[in-house]
Simulated scan of single mutants.
Amino acid sequence: MDDRELADLLEQFGLSEKVVDTYLTLLELGEAKASQIADAAGVSKRYVYSVSKELESRGFVEVNDHVVPTTIRPLPPMEVIESLSESVESMRPALEERYTATARDQERFEVIKSRVTVLKRIGELVGRAESEITLSLPYDVLDEVEDELRAARERGVLVSLVVSGVEPHDDLALDGVASLVRVWHELMPTMLTVDSRTGLISPGEMVARSNSESQAIVFAQPHLGPVIVGSFFGNYWPMAAEAYTTDPDPLPAMYHNFRHAVLQAALCERAGIDLDVTVSGRMVHTDGPTELHGRVVDIRQGLLEPANNSFPVENAFVVETDEGTYSIGGQGAFVEDFEADAVEFTAAE
């Protein structure tokens, strides 16, 4: 870092350019008399006395006015940094108290022109996932983000993956990289969503080739995320061939992501495991209970083959309770009887 860069940083702490220049001169001199500092900095001795008091109050120097003549000693840099850090940290409670989240980041878009940056952003976004990831990308670059995907799975994130540009065959290394993997021989757009809030969209050739002139978009837009998820499951997922599915989770199991719950119900059905369920949420069309207990008697989904949903993005299950039979949907459900916030499965007795 050169002197100008250092001076610019110091000025950010409220010091004027002239004060900074005087302080940097003192750092080079070490402990010195005011007259020596004045000569070296090209300022008056009176100014040095004035500045030294300000710098002393800010924790930058020590003024030894008990000796004649008075000397000024710069404090060790570590002490200065600690003092500045404490000053900055002391502002945090007041700033947080006054901060109003305007969701600016939620409206952010970033244009990317580099293939390397696209793959880097995918890795970064996958690393932040808490609940669900949908991703399509060429199989040839899967290894670029494989570690991040496996780590997401270890955190319990639902990962639905389509790898494109390759024919389905037995030696694809897919075990554990996602919850569900489908394969499509055609090259398709690279599409990523993380927790239905953030994501990335890129033409397929931009990731597949290093010399593409295409551009990608990273978005942080909670209203756009569900649209991309719907396109992923409605337009591309049904076209691809099922290549890998995870095993059912150990029971009992709790889910706050409804698509994850439907997947587990379908995996248990495939494995011949009957399920009892407790669902928390609300009735959609009428007043009624906020919690249902019963047996899962039907599943409508398009996550696993064979799909049996009545429209591409339908994922639901039906619960038979002592009070009646109810269809269960996730957040925003409008076709089903009950909108679920949380689902807990246990093995049926």
Rank of each mutant, 00 (worst) to 15 (best):
residue 158 L to C: 04
residue 329 G to A: 13
residue 180 L to Q: 03
residue 317 F to L: 14
residue 262 V to G: 12
residue 293 H to S: 07
residue 299 I to A: 02
residue 101 A to F: 14
residue 73 R to G: 08
residue 303 L to N: 07
residue 40 A to N: 09
residue 39 D to V: 03
residue 345 F to T: 06
residue 294 G to T: 03
residue 143 D to C: 00
residue 40 A to W: 02
residue 266 A to I: 01
residue 191 M to A: 13
residue 303 L to W: 01
residue 26 L to A: 05
residue 296 V to H: 05
residue 273 I to N: 01
residue 294 G to V: 03
residue 53 K to A: 06
residue 59 G to V: 02
residue 183 V to Y: 00
residue 119 L to T: 02
residue 22 T to V: 11
residue 233 F to Q: 11
residue 252 P to I: 11
residue 185 H to C: 05
residue 33 K to D: 12
residue 288 G to I: 07
residue 156 G to P: 09
residue 209 R to I: 01
residue 213 E to S: 15
residue 189 P to Q: 08
residue 125 L to A: 07
residue 202 S to T: 09
residue 8 D to V: 01
residue 232 F to A: 11
residue 318 V to A: 06
residue 20 V to E: 01
residue 42 G to K: 04
residue 29 L to R: 06
residue 114 S to C: 03
residue 185 H to F: 04
residue 174 L to I: 01
residue 167 E to T: 06
residue 254 M to G: 12
residue 261 A to H: 06
residue 247 D to L: 01
residue 51 V to H: 12
residue 152 A to K: 09
residue 84 L to V: 15
residue 134 T to K: 02
residue 162 V to R: 05
residue 235 N to I: 13
residue 8 D to S: 10
residue 328 I to F: 03
residue 157 V to E: 07
residue 121 R to V: 07
residue 251 L to Y: 13
residue 273 I to T: 15
residue 214 S to L: 04
residue 61 V to T: 10
residue 303 L to A: 07
residue 241 A to S: 14
residue 77 P to N: 04
residue 22 T to A: 08
residue 333 A to N: 10
residue 195 D to M: 05
residue 45 K to I: 09
residue 320 E to V: 11
residue 128 R to W: 07
residue 28 E to P: 00
residue 7 A to G: 07
residue 98 R to K: 13
residue 196 S to H: 08
residue 44 S to Q: 03
residue 143 D to A: 05
residue 106 Q to T: 14
residue 283 M to P: 12
residue 240 A to G: 10
residue 207 V to L: 05
residue 278 T to I: 15
residue 332 G to V: 06
residue 14 G to P: 04
residue 167 E to C: 00
residue 273 I to S: 01
residue 72 I to F: 14
residue 125 L to H: 08
residue 62 E to M: 03
residue 331 Q to A: 15
residue 94 A to H: 15
residue 33 K to Q: 13
residue 150 R to F: 05
residue 211 N to W: 04
residue 149 L to R: 01
residue 288 G to P: 09
residue 337 D to G: 10
residue 184 W to Y: 04
residue 207 V to D: 05
residue 226 P to S: 10
residue 102 T to A: 06
residue 315 N to S: 15
residue 128 R to K: 10
residue 131 S to M: 04
residue 305 E to R: 05
residue 303 L to F: 02
residue 88 V to K: 08
residue 314 E to F: 00
residue 347 A to I: 13
residue 81 I to C: 01
residue 337 D to A: 12
residue 126 V to I: 10
residue 105 D to M: 10
residue 14 G to W: 08
